[in-house]
Every structure is written in C-alpha cells, then in structure tokens.
Computed example of a mutant assay.
Amino acid sequence: MKQNTIVSLLSFINRIGFTLLVSVVGLMMQSTNIQPVQNCGMNGSQVDSVQYLKRLQQLANNDTSGKWPVYPQPYPLKGAILPYKRIVAFYGNLYSKKMGVLGKYTPDELWEKLNEEVQNWEQADSLTPVQPALHYVAVVAQNNPMKDGQYRYRMPSNQIDSVLTIAQMGNAIVFLDIQPGHSTVNIEVPLLEAYLKMPNVHLGLDPEFSMKEGNVPGTVKGYVTAEDINFCTNYLSGLVKKYRLPPKVFVVHRFTQSMVRNCEQIQLYSEVQIVINMDGWGRPGLKKSTYRDFIYQEPVQFTGFKLFYINDLKQPPFRMMRPEEILELKPKPIYIQYQ
C-alpha cells in the first residue's frame, strides 16, 4: 500500500472516529506491516494522530522491512518536538575544547556556526523546521576517582546556568548529558531535577562511559541496559506529569552492539521521546554501516546521527557527510549532533 493511500485512510479514520480504527488498521497491517498503536486513547492532550503517523511514515523513508516506523508506540502529548521538528545540536563541555564545539568558541561564534548548520538542514529538508539545541555534558567520566570513589565529575550549577544563558541567545533547547563512570543513572538523573523540570531542558545518556564492570572509563566501552533507560524514561515521565510539561526528549548514544542491551525491553511513554543516536566517527561508509547495524536493526522510537568536525576527517575521503546524504538513510534521523 502506497504512503498516500495510508495517509488517506488515516484521514478517514480521524473523521469517523475511533469505532472503525481497529478494523481499518487491521487491513493496513496486512498490506504494510504496520502494527496498531497502543495506549492512543482519545486523550485531548495528545497530538493529532493522523499527522503524527503521517510524519512517522515520512521518516521511515519508504523502508519495507517492517522495522520502521516503530509500532506500537503511544502518541506523544501536545507540545512534542519530534517528529515535527528536526533537532540540530552542538555538543561539548565549557571546560574543554577537545570535547566538542561548546567549549571551543565564544557564545557569539558558537551561534554563528550553529545557525549555519541550521540553515543547511532547512535547505536540505524544507518540510521539517529545525530546533537548535546545545547538548552539554553535565556529568563527565574521569580516569581517576573523585573523593567519593566514583569516576565522574558533576559540573557545577554555574556552568549549567551559563549553557542555559547561551541557549537563550537563539531560542535553543538544552540537553544535559550523563557519563556515569562508576555511578548510576538512578543516582545521577534525580540530581539534575532542578534543571530537568524546566520545559526547555532534556536528557542525554552516554553508555560508552557507564562502567558497570568496574573498569576505568576510556579503557573499554561501557554499556547500559533497558532497565537503565526505563529508569530514565519513567523518571522523566513523572516530571512531565508533576510539572505539566511538554514531552521530554531523551537521547541515548550508541555505536556498538553491546552499548545498549535488551532493546526490546525498552518502554515508551507519551511523556518521553527516545532517540538512539549513532555516535560513531569515521568515513561516510563506516558511519552508514554503523547506523544500519546498530540503529536501524534494533528500532526503539526515533534515530539520531552524530557528525564530528575533526574525527570524521581522519579517514578518506577526509570529509563530513552532507545533510542530503544523511537524509537518504532509512529511517531519516530526526536528531543531528555536531561535535
């Protein structure tokens, strides 16, 4: 069944109501491998279901495997960023020029460069507005233990406040990223509640530096489990309900099979939108294969793609991938990160 036929059916469903939803979706499943969306209800606080499903189909980019779009999944609450906008984020830490662009430039220079990337993506995909973002590593893994024995350093509040101030210069949202070291998300995420309860602040998690086996960060690749991710999404969901916030976006980095375990057990919520972000660097062919093997093959909800201003130029053909190339991927990434 072609996409325009699907959209027509969905528009018809929206007009006639929920009564015929099950029977019509059943026909769609037989022809398109689409599965019914669970927990959709008729909640007025949720987004328009027809438009949401239409955009999911567009992101799937004509994938015929049945993996994308991800069904079933709950409809998000109103105010959701995804899939209505593409997030384009600059990554890093204000203390380090090596961790990414956030620590490399002055605020004015940063915004000049970020606006250039925003324009590039708007030109490549004129149908999807861009939401600029600053992705700040708020908990940084260390190769030596802190006083409490944990191999991570929590950024002081004045540094996070500085990032929020820089974000306000261009109406950007902010991600606070956690590299747990020997700590856990159960400990680190609640400590950021003062910021996560803000409507413009979202969460990131870096499994590479989650050292569950006790290794020193950076010596081996770490990992997180579905249980870790579910703790984060459940916690964020609670904040959204408690403070009556728009949905949170939760970005989880990944570039190996073992970095995210038991993906099939990850739970989805109307209050949280999960992005699995392809975090590997290298030549275009390598990045595409990493995306295919570890993002495409294990669907969660939405996908992201990371670009490195330095590391992506270390291998032939010594260039970064262009937005037009990335938009050819299946599914199309809806979160783009620059380091």
Rank of each mutant, 00 (worst) to 15 (best):
66 G>R: 03
66 G>W: 04
66 G>A: 11
67 K>R: 15
67 K>N: 14
67 K>T: 13
68 W>H: 10
68 W>P: 07
69 P>E: 09
69 P>G: 09
71 Y>I: 00
71 Y>L: 03
71 Y>N: 14
71 Y>E: 14
72 P>I: 06
72 P>V: 06
72 P>F: 01
72 P>R: 03
73 Q>H: 07
73 Q>C: 07
74 P>N: 05
75 Y>T: 14
75 Y>R: 12
76 P>L: 05
76 P>F: 02
76 P>Q: 02
76 P>E: 02
76 P>M: 04
77 L>C: 00
77 L>R: 06
78 K>P: 01
79 G>K: 04
79 G>F: 01
80 A>D: 13
81 I>N: 13
81 I>Y: 10
81 I>T: 15
82 L>N: 11
83 P>T: 11
83 P>I: 11
83 P>V: 08
84 Y>V: 05
85 K>I: 06
85 K>H: 14
85 K>Y: 07
87 I>Q: 05
87 I>F: 04
87 I>Y: 05
88 V>W: 00
89 A>Q: 07
89 A>D: 04
90 F>N: 11
90 F>K: 06
92 G>D: 09
92 G>C: 11
93 N>W: 00
93 N>E: 14
94 L>D: 03
94 L>Y: 00
94 L>H: 01
97 K>D: 15
97 K>Q: 15
98 K>W: 00
98 K>A: 15
99 M>K: 03
100 G>A: 10
100 G>V: 11
